[in-house]
């Protein structure tokens, strides 16, 4: 059973992230989600939207679109991020360097690692020219 839905299209600009985060916070507070869940959803959206803007290879002549859906189903929050750029699967990213010393620690790859680690489900599909990332977070 779907208990609640939230749907927003964001402009393909990194400056939109702040408005998006505020909307997610309002959604979370309205539905009494734990602070941690709101935080990790916003962390995931910052990473995924930024990744899409950087790697999404939007084609000329096609208006870039990023659409975000949040829904609560039973005891899970589902987050879907759709974009119309070229095929880009962030779930294939390799594991980042998490152990080396400060001087040699590689920079990068961390964001997606955090998204993967914190989500209970993280999947990608490319369907009809649309990249679709689905994340789920258990509330129990």
């Amino acid at each position: 059973m779907i208990t609640s839905d939230f749907h927003v299209q964001v402009a393909a600009r990194v400056s939109e992230l702040r408005d998006l985060a505020a909307m997610v916070e309002t959604f979370g507070e309205t539905h009494d989600l734990p602070h941690r869940t709101i935080f990790i959803i916003n962390l995931a959206l910052d990473e995924l939207v930024t990744n899409t803007l950087v790697h999404g290879s939007f084609q000329e002549g096609i208006e870039p679109k990023i659409v975000i859906d949040l829904s609560i189903r039973e005891n899970r929050v589902r987050v879907v991020v759709e974009s119309n750029g070229g095929r880009f699967d962030p779930t294939e990213d390799t594991e980042p360097d998490l152990t080396s010393e400060l001087e040699t620690r590689a920079i990068g790859g961390l964001g997606i690692h955090l998204v993967k680690t914190q989500a209970d489900k993280f999947s990608y599909e490319f369907d009809n020219g649309i990249n679709r990332l689905t994340l789920e977070y258990n509330l129990t």
Partner: peptide, 16 residues
Amino acid sequence: SFISSSGMRVLLIGAK
């Protein structure tokens, strides 16, 4: 209230 991996990266660069 919030820091993303891009913010963490800034701290790593600063620490180095």
